[in-house]
Amino acid sequence: MLGVGLLGFVMLNGGYLVTVLGLAAIYGVFCTGLNLFMGYTGQASFGQSAFAAVGGYGTAILCAGHGWDPVAGLVVSMAIAGLLALVVGYPVMRLRGHYLAMATFALGLIVYELSVEWSGLTQGYMGYAGIPPLGFAGHELGTERAQLGALVAIMLFGVWLAERMKSSRFGRALRAIAGSEPAAMALGIPVSRYKLAAFVVAAVYASAAGSLFAHFIGFISPEVFGVPMVVLSFTMLYLGGIGTIWGPVMGAVIASLLPELFRGLKEMQDIAYSVVLILMLIFVPGGLAGLLRRLARKPT
């Protein structure tokens, strides 16, 4: 309700907030994917930025470099990211706890370093400019508002898909794994295969988010997909409520609007995100969605 109102208001008024909400929708896609892996399956990936980078650079190279159609670039990048997640995930998903955390973190850092160093492919620190806006079969979405509409539609589709997955056999298996791996195994769930599948799905979401970002902003550089992106997406996830359907989207919108309240130095924003994240982790680990549910349940 509030979301629809906000969207309508911004659509009518336009301006800078269109960009902010567009980015929120993109992060909504990213966090919805991450949520499948972390919220439902109870695993951790600190390297999802790697797959967003695959999407972003895939789109940049295919669309800006080779003149591909945006949709084709998006889909091919998603396939590459999924394949990469499959290959990397196969050995890495055997790890647990802090090993898993650090291995995925390393993955993000490796891709970051490669995007800086492999300048023949990625144009290095300079970044990739001139990426066309979203469109299909030669028709570009000219205005920012039209793009925002498309982004929100794509995000809602992503959320709908996640919702379907959550209540499917696949989703129930994932939640069983989050509850207890040995118990899930005893129920006949092939634990490592399902973990890998969740990892691949999350990577495909992240890649889509990276592609959308490239189209929306028109420019990407290695900095876009660095460690701050990981922390920001976790902030959104924990702010909104990890393991819920709408939590990631809520978190993405709120965390995107947050800096608008206290515009200022980029450093101050990062500090604010970190502080919010730490406070949420300590005091409200269920996020806003969990908080709302608790309030709703309380007899008045």
Binding site: M38, A44, F46, G97, H98, A101, V227, P228, V230, V231, F234, T235, Y238, E267, M268, D270, I271, Y273, S274, V275, L277, I278, L281, I282, P285
Partner: peptide, 19 residues
């Protein structure tokens, strides 16, 4: 709190101290 959350919090501390 789960271990992942603690790792995440220390990562946030790192960014905070850097800034």
């Amino acid at each position: 709190t789960s271990m992942f959350a603690i790792i995440l919090a220390t990562l946030a501390v790192q960014i905070m101290i850097e800034r």
